[in-house]
Every structure is written in structure tokens, then in C-alpha cells.
Amino acid sequence: MRVGIIGCGGMGYHHARMATNCGLRVAACGDTVRSKAEALAQEYSAEPVSDSLALVRRNDVDIVAVCTPTPNHAPYVVAAAEAGKHIFCEKPFGRTVEQCREAIAAARKAKVKLFVAHVLRYFQEFEAIKAQIDAGKVGKVGFVKSYRGGVYPRGEANWFRDYAQSGGVTLDCIIHDFDWLRYVFGDAERVFCQALQRSEPDVLDYSLVTFRMKSGVIAHVIGTWAHPSGFRVKVEVCGDGGMLQFDSADAPISSMMREQAGGTPGMIIPSSPVPVSPYQLEWQDFVGWLEGKHPPRVKPEDGLKAVRMALGALESAKTGRPVKL
């Protein structure tokens, strides 16, 4: 099967590699910035395309991977579905719940397979946490806390810094945790959120989110795009029989360069290598589904519900009140 990548930025590059690792061929690369389409296309001897709506109709494309900024995920998903292509869509599934619904309806109507890339469900550490919970190591869970983030990303033309496009750290980053919470603990009943969303004098976002799950579990999620550097993930799960903690800062490898390109000493870079990237595991899952081997770990409705959780949080931040989900 042949893949067309739409959006040849950070994630476009990544997914082109993952798809290739799964034995797929990258046939076309679309980006509104011509040079980015060309650069990625060159690496895979693929066809660069400026008009990504044309890309979805190409005969040499069977799967469309949507890796653009969030607001145009849904329009490309709909176009790809109408062209009869299977779709791999980056999270957040859409910028609005309505967009997610349209995308789901289009895929259903066209009978194509639509996968939303909630990659946390494939991260080895998160799978290990889930396995410990499932094995009863912490007893019945009552409280969960997770923490994610680091420096504020930029992206092409600084789109991450435009809250109207990215939704800040709440919609773009900790949506990973929102989906994972649902995956492990079921649906959320209500949400309360405080979101920093500063633009002056610097673009900084920090989000404090509390979910009351339908099960009664309280989940607190902290998202930061307010740190000067780095990236860190922490998880804590507390139950009536024990508790568990994970901290990405507690890594097996850490390195530090005496001098960097700019002449300044580098900071400590932690790393935690895994034999297979979770991004590749999600592609394997997606491809296995396309081949009729098994259902996918993430369904389009999961993508929609995660967006609803994030938008509920942002609504709460705006109104100062809890929002029922």
C-alpha cells in the first residue's frame, strides 16, 4: 500500500519513516509550503504536491496521513474519505467536535478506515502502568495525576502559538493524557480547568485540569508549555491497595555536551531508548486493521471524545465553572 503524507513538518517526517518501516511506500507528499513538500518527497523518491486536496485523489495513494496543523485535519479527512482512501489522522482529531463528527460521518459513508493517532496508548511506559493497574497492584484506583510538557513549540509559521489554531497545551498536548485516562478509567463526568494562555510578553501556556470520571475517580492533569526547555512526563496512580509513579526524568541515559554549536554548554539530555518506537507500533496497529487482522486500539469516537474533553476544559477555563461532559 502507498501513503500520501499531508503536512510535511515534524510529524509528517516522522510518520513517513514509520510507514516505511511498516513496509508501506510513501508515494506523495503534500504541503502548502512547496519547499517542505519537496524536501520530504526527495527523501522517499515521492511526488511533491502543493495542493493536498489533489493529493488525496491520486491513484498512487491508498492511505492518507494527515499531519497538518489541527484546524485542517477534518477537511483533509473528509476529502480523503470521499476519494475512497483510508486515513491516518494526527491528534487532536479536530479543532471542534463538529469537525470530528463530519470526519467520522464521511469515513463511515465512504466505508474507509479512519485511525486517530493517540500514540500514548502505544507508549511502553503507559502500557506498563496500565498492566500494573490491571494486575491489581494498586487496588481499586481512586486518584490519578499526570503531568506533561516543556517548552512552547513553534511549528510552521508559529501555528502552535496561535491559540485559535492549536488550542494551546490543553488541546494539543495533554489531550494525550485525556485520551489515556478514558482508555484506562472510562468516561469523564465533568471537568474544571485553569489555563494560562499568555501571549505577552511571552507566549506561555500552563493548564491545570481536573476531571471527575463517571466512576468517581478524580484525575488531575497538568500541562506545561511554560518551561524554558526540556520535556517531561510524570504519572501517579493511587488506589486502595498501593500506588505507582512514573517520571521521565528518571531515565537510563543522560548525556551532556561540553560545548554546543553556539559555544554554550549543553544541558542534560535524558534518553530512554526502546526497541520499537510507539509511533511505529501505532502504524503496525493501523496497518493490521487495514489488513483485516484485528480492530484498532483507537477508534475515531475515541478521538472525538478526547477533543470533547479538551474543549470542555477550555470552556471551563473561559467561564471559570465546571463543565459537564
Partner: peptide, 25 residues
């Protein structure tokens, strides 16, 4: 109660979350 997640606002809009708990096993 044995877990409380408290969201607070301070003068000038300073936003705070605080976990007050007896959740340590």
C-alpha cells in the same frame, strides 16, 4: 474525604492547583 483537588485563584489572576491527600500507600 481522603483526596481533594483544589483549584485556586489569587489576586492578579495567579492560578493554582493543589492536591490535598492521604493517598500515600
Amino acid at each position: 474525604d481522603d483526596v481533594g483537588v483544589v483549584h485556586l485563584e489569587m489576586e492578579g489572576g495567579l492560578m493554582v492547583s493543589h492536591i490535598a491527600s492521604w493517598n500515600r500507600s
